[in-house]
Design a protein around this nucleic acid. Structure first.
Length: 990
DNA sequence: ACCGCCGGGTGCC
DNA sequence: ACCGCCGGGTGCC
């Protein structure tokens, strides 16, 4: 895999001050964009993909005359238990695709069905072969799906009640099982004589790879100019995306799989029909690769398509108005204003003088961080994110430079002078606030009441916290200076809960955590009271887990148009798509059963018809281009080269001794766990050993907490136990192992530790305990689990404040020497080249600061514990091309999200290998992205004969796994455990 | 007739 | 439901 390609050209070699021995490899395994490895454990969800078809049974639906739901011939129906039915606790309802009840299963059959369903022995699905025109009863063909091991129990139970299931047919039922009744099947079912062709896993994977490939259709290759209020010239592929998005938003077509048939609308997948025209989603999925400008395209959309392709009526500032409103006084008093004005001026970035203005305005416009020392993981629902901003009603506009921009303002969009909006918008901010209070609810647009399209103007954008500032930056950068846009950042403890205020904005920006906590706590979420013109979910794959609160919160938003922006629409399973489709409200997929029966299961079973349906669905609603995509023969993005070198570092005799001592001790303990078979029970301890070894590879001072092995068998006082568990949790969180919550499979938010020492998100594990009532078990080790035993992470002094706690005298380390040597050589070559120095250990970054200062490097720093405001400052400072600006940024591996743009750097020094290679690649992409003009050279420092080398081999395994495992079954809990155990063995040389 | 047969009332779970 | 089932009316040939 590794081509030897480490040359003398990069100039590592002997040196008086900083010496290092080195050899290196080029890391060539780079291309696995979409296939992120994720630890997957079977959580609370049923393993639907393990289900097999047990067989079919015909039964009867009765009581039709009492219900309104009607069905067609061959229509799919849902069977739903109704345990609270007063006449029969075994009752099973029959619903049509719309969820309207059609009738009940006849009671004799309902009895065994109730037992089978309640005990989760099988899922029962129905199709009504002669569904139409029945008055009292109708037949229903049922198929039973479940885990192989439950098949006999199902057969027995049916037999007990005198029913005999027909065995499944060979291949014809592979699809939806519907062509069994092909007498009157709809057109989407296999043609007579055609049997479903099953694909191999390999074929399936390659089909998946092609799923989102660029589709050369008219709709997607036509370009339109961006609105003139966008100050930036859109790239050709962005113009295409904009044209496509505008088309989607004004889409009058039926949604996919619907046809009009003699005055009815007919769904070809389920055979459901209704009089009412099914709404198509006015929106879709923009799934362009990272760095292609989804944000900019979306901003252009917001301005370009307010209604029927007409632009948003925005206020254009006239010269005299400007001076009147934003003259000297408002600038002077800026600090006191409740709302501050963001200065947005696209020319400014080129002129240094103006640049400064923009920066200072920007920083002053950022919300203040409240002084309160809220713990990182405190109870308060508002503080799930560590930064606290004051809310603000922000106007994007300009105060200067009118003469140069006025011309353009004349010619731009169809702005209607005297709309109600315009006058409200024209008021200076402080006044606006008062007005808002006075006006109260008069202008509020409540979701249910006012459906008139003209009544809605606001686009709600939801993004991860890490890209919030990116949105603000891009709004400033790209919107013409003569345009006045009301933007409200709905964030922070003092955010306004007034829907009227929100509905007056052009754009409301918020985060997933705010969305979820507003939705979850009290019923006062204004986000859920309004009907938005448009909702945009940035990094929309964030809602892929249907059980996560943020997903439910997002699905409950009301909007006329809906967009999902994501670079990775499918992260590791087709299942990831469901939440996205559900958000888009495409009938009938919002209900998981129909999605599963019509697409997910057929595809997972290798059915070609299923795959075709999936393809045509995706084609219909998504646009995706990768960095490799071409437009008129030219690559969409031409990125400079990226090279990864591995530089091996040899520890000094002294360092090696400490390392060996800790390793021997740890190895002893871990091999004991192995012989006892308790490795997973001691998972936190094992991580601790590995952590210390990784730290020692970097610097001896990182490994402060001396050996913390403790026989857990000993009886501790509750206080001691608590402290131990808290330490373990801190260990897991700080180990950089990127542990995920085994329930939601996402990174830990609001972590708690169980008495069995496993860490979960608090909401996730609470839900597990609730649902498994009285005897809940740990999802990882099946130990007893109790709500009152969960321990939360206590408030933590952030690294940021307590950096200089190490009162020990500074000493170098082999790795620091190797780094400094490289930096100094590099500076000789090119004094202005900018570098990222990346580590998972922020204390290591702090230790690196000392020699950087001594050698006269100007540097800045970005890590997760910094308040948002400081981060923005650090980024802007580093990105600046001014003389004397920092040439080095100390960066913690996981700081910032995908949006982080550090293109000023063309060199990266990765100080310690990460567990997950994808995390490293994401980090590299922060400088290797749109805007990078130079080749990017990455140096990974790896200590010879150490845990770090072993980590590299694990990384390679994960890469291969990630590249090959897509679309195959997710690993079972025991497979995950085995993988972990194997990893531990590799890492500690057992 | 402690039956059969007739025909009206009635109808999910 | 053009069914089944129920229960009241009825009753040789």
């Amino acid at each position: 895999m590794f081509a030897k390609n480490y040359g003398s050209s990069t100039g590592y070699g002997g040196n008086r001050t900083y010496s290092c021995s080195s050899s290196g490899d080029v890391d060539s395994a780079l291309g696995f964009e979409d296939f992120l490895y994720t630890d997957d454990t079977s959580g609370t969800d049923e393993d639907l993909d393990l289900f097999v078809l047990f067989g079919n049974l015909r039964g009867n639906v009765v009581g039709l005359r009492y219900y309104t739901g009607v069905v067609n011939n061959n229509e799919m129906v849902a069977l739903q238990r109704e345990p609270n039915n007063p006449y029969d606790k075994n009752a099973v309802k029959v619903n049509n695709v719309n969820g309207d009840q059609v009738g009940h299963i006849k009671k004799e059959l309902a009895a065994p069905l109730a037992y089978i369903i309640d005990n989760k022995l099988a899922r029962v699905e129905g199709i009504v072969p002669y569904g139409a025109k029945n008055t009292f009863t109708m037949p229903v063909q049922m198929s039973f799906w479940g885990k192989e091991e439950n098949k006999q129990a199902v057969l027995d139970r049916l037999k007990m009640h005198g029913f005999k299931m027909a065995p499944p047919l060979k291949s014809s039922e592979l699809g939806f099982g519907s062509n069994l009744f092909s007498g009157r099947a709809g057109p989407s079912y296999s043609a007579p004589g055609h049997t479903a062709v099953q694909m191999t896993t390999e074929q399936l994977k390659s089909e998946f790879d092609k799923l989102f490939e660029d589709l050369k259709e008219d709709d997607k290759t036509r370009e339109i100019q961006g609105p003139e209020v966008i100050g930036t010239q859109l790239l050709p592929h962005q113009k295409q995306a904009l044209a496509w998005m505008v088309l989607r938003e004004n889409n009058k077509e039926l949604p996919p799989f619907w046809e009009e048939r003699n005055n009815f609308f007919y769904n070809t997948l389920t055979n459901f029909a209704e009089k009412e025209r099914p709404e198509n989603v006015l929106g879709g999925i923009l799934a362009d690769d990272m760095g292609l400008g989804k944000t900019l395209t979306t901003i252009a959309l917001i301005l370009a398509n307010f209604h029927n392709g007409k632009p948003l009526p925005v206020e254009k500032i006239k010269r005299d108005q400007l001076y009147k409103e934003f003259g000297a006084t408002s600038v002077k008093n800026e600090g006191d204003l409740p709302f501050k004005d963001l200065n947005c001026n696209l020319e400014s970035s080129t002129s240094s003088g103006k640049n400064e203005t923009v920066q200072s305005q920007l920083s002053s416009s950022y919300p203040k961080r409240t002084k309160a020392k809220k713990p990182k993981y405190s109870e308060s629902s508002d503080s799930e994110e560590s930064e606290e901003w004051l809310p603000q009603e922000t106007r994007i506009n300009t105060k200067k430079d009118l003469p140069t921009t006025r011309k353009r303002s004349k010619a731009s969009c169809n702005f209607q002078e005297d709309t109600g909006f315009a006058s409200a918008l024209a008021a200076p901010s402080p006044t606006l606030k008062k007005k808002a209070k006075k006006k109260g609810t008069s202008s509020i647009q409540l979701a249910k009441k006012d459906d008139s399209e003209e009544g809605q103007r606001t686009t709600l954008i939801i993004c991860p916290l890490s890209v919030l500032s990116n949105w603000i930056d891009q709004l400033e950068q790209h919107i013409s200076p003569d345009v006045h846009l009301n933007v409200y950042v709905y964030y922070g403890p003092d955010r306004s809960k007034d829907p009227a205020l929100l509905s007056r904005q052009d754009i409301v920006l918020t985060t997933y955590n705010i969305l979820a906590s507003d939705y979850g706590s009290r019923g006062d979420s204004p986000l859920h009271k309004l009907k938005w013109l448009r909702v945009v979910l940035d990094e929309g794959h964030t809602i892929r887990n249907p059980n996560a609160l943020q997903t439910k919160a997002a699905l409950n938003l009301e909007a006329q148009r809906r967009w999902i922006l994501t670079g990775t629409p499918i992260q590791n399973s087709l299942k990831d798509l469901w939440s996205l489709l559900s958000f888009l409200k495409l009938k009938p997929f919002a209900d998981r059963e129909w999605w599963h029966r019509t697409i997910q299961r057929p595809v997972m079973m290798g059915d070609q018809g299923g795959l075709r349906r999936l393809q045509s669905l995706i084609k219909n609603i998504t646009l995706r281009r990768t960095k490799m995509s071409k437009i008129k023969g030219k690559p969409v993005l031409e990125l400079p080269e990226r090279k990864v070198f591995i530089q091996h570092v040899t520890l000094t005799e002294e360092e090696r001794q400490i390392y060996q001592a800790v390793k021997n001790e740890g190895k002893l303990a871990i091999s004991r766990y192995f012989s006892e078979g308790t490795v997973l029970a001691h998972y936190a301890d094992v991580l601790g050993v590995l952590l210390r070894l990784r730290q020692l590879c970097c610097h001896p001072h990182l490994c402060t907490n001396a050996s913390s092995f403790s026989g857990t068998g000993v009886n501790n006082t509750p206080e001691e136990l608590r402290e131990k568990l808290v330490n373990k949790m801190k260990l897991v969180l700080s180990s950089g192992s990127d542990e995920e919550c085994a329930v939601c499979l996402d990174s830990l938010t609001f972590p708690v530790i169980t008495h069995c020492a496993h860490v979960f998100c608090k909401p996730c594990i609470c839900e597990v305990i609730q649902s498994e009532q009285p005897n809940a078990k740990c999802p990882l080790c099946r130990n007893e689990l109790r709500l009152e035993h969960l321990i939360e992470c206590p408030p933590e002094e952030s690294d940021f404040e307590s950096v200089k706690k190490s009162d020990r005298e500074w000493i170098p380390s082999s790795k620091i020497n190797a780094l400094m040597h490289a930096l100094i050589e590099l500076r000789k070559e090119n004094p202005v080249v900018k570098c990222l120095i990346v580590s998972q250990f922020t204390t290591f970054l702090s230790l690196i600061e000392t020699p950087l200062r001594e050698s006269g490097f100007v540097f800045t720093r970005l890590d997760g514990s910094m308040p948002q405001k400081k981060r923005v400052e650090a980024i802007q400072c580093f990105q600046s091309s001014q003389a004397g600006s920092p040439t080095i940024m100390l960066l913690s591996l996981k700081a910032g999200g995908v949006g982080l743009n550090l293109t000023a750097a063309s060199r990266v020094f990765l100080m310690d290998p990460a567990w997950n290679p994808a995390a490293e690649d994401q980090c590299f992409d922060r400088c290797h992205r749109l805007g990078q003009k130079q080749a990017v050279i990455i140096t990974k420092f790896v200590v010879k004969n150490s845990v770090e080398e072993n980590m590299l081999s694990i990384q390679n395994k994960k890469r291969k796994l990630a590249a090959g495992a897509f679309a195959t079954k997710k690993p079972t809990a025991s497979e995950v455990k085995q993988t972990k155990i194997n990893e531990i063995k590799t890492l500690i040389d057992l």
